[in-house]
Design a protein around this nucleic acid. Structure first.
Lengths: 203, 203
DNA sequence: GTCTATACTGAGATAGAC
DNA sequence: GTCTATCTCAGTATAGAC
């Protein structure tokens, strides 16, 4: 069939998102997609490369939406100060929107960040937009030095990844809360964190 | 030998912390510990149970330190208001202290939280102290409703886990920053997040 | 070019001899 | 308590049918 590739991609996206990448075997994927084992390797090369292709197919639009959102925020700010929450929203809201239509893929993205899964894949897909995002953040919170800003970005990624996966570490939180609400709360929480004063240099 | 168990535990702790749990095979562990494959299954039952035992051995003291720290914070506050940052420090600083002497184990704890690894293990080891911690937090930020507090705790766990693993998602951050400095910055960031005003109920 | 059948290696687990 | 042998299932590689 012509759409063997499609079937593999669709099935892999679903199973990786639902069960996690490592917890899903290729044999599960090929059974669910009703194709042969070797087809995966023929079309994609390896399990890692399959993941890469799965992400490739869907990550582009999210990145574009993020950049457009950030464009608007920067245009509205003009030469004036940039609002932290607006910058954070430009990064997080497109994800929330995608989560409405495709929650499993968003979970997969969350997993990839938090499981430290395939750093090279994450990097290739997100690094460029992430860099622009960090620059906007630096402008929004100019009281922070580079080092301190980067640490807060690091904290942000952790919080974000953990929130996207939909996996409460303990049964603390109502995971049925819709994504836009989650993200609004996350933006507020992180915004306040970024606004917090810088440490005095005293070490 | 009598200390076969010990050797396995020590080696497993090191390799799991360095490489991750899933990325480490039992065969690596038994080779490094110079014991037989079956010894692991004899002493621990399974790879999962070995992880459990590894965590068991070291997690207790951290929990005790956390609870003692929280005792002090609550005693100092008396019936007055509880400081958020103090509560956060009670949870995070014992980890930072352990990280000084045993960084790999702390990385392993971080991985366990963020990889969604063995939820039952995490729960058994941390649930009780986590509940007391959440109650103290609720007292420190009484302006938050239950739901909103829990979401912020969720964000906190993500940020914390990501910070403990020592795995920067992209090469953004200087991982050589010592743990106490990291944790001080994290406490400040999270403290501001928890202090952020509650959302108006408008959905 | 696309796919199938099959075999190879290494993982975790288990039974049973010592 | 310890070790050998063996089982099942994972990811991967390749030869060859269409």
């Amino acid at each position: 069939m012509i759409d063997t590739k499609q079937k593999i991609l669709d099935t892999a996206e679903r199973l990786f998102g639902e069960q996690g990448f490592r917890a899903t075997s290729l044999r599960q994927v090929i059974a669910a997609a009703k194709v042969n084992v070797a087809a995966v390797h023929y079309h994609f090369g390896s399990k890692d490369d399959l993941l890469d292709a799965v992400v490739d197919r869907k990550a582009g639009p999210v990145t574009v939406a993020r950049m457009e959102w950030l464009d608007r925020v920067e245009a509205e700010a003009g030469t004036g100060p940039l609002n932290v929450e607006d910058v954070l929203a430009s990064f997080l809201m497109p994800t929330a929107e995608m989560a409405q239509s495709n929650p499993t893929f968003v979970r997969l993205m969350g997993r990839m960040l938090s499981e430290g899964m395939m750093p090279s894949i994450v990097e290739r897909h997100f690094r460029e937009s992430a860099m622009r995002f960090v620059m906007a953040l630096a402008r929004a919170v100019p009281h922070l030095g580079r080092e301190e800003l980067m640490w807060r970005v690091h904290f942000m990624i952790g919080a974000m990844a953990h929130t996207l996966t939909g996996q409460p570490a303990m049964h603390m939180v109502d995971m049925s809360t819709d994504f836009p609400t989650r993200v609004r709360q996350l933006v507020k929480f992180l915004g306040a964190g970024f606004r917090a004063p810088a440490e005095r240099e005293e070490n």
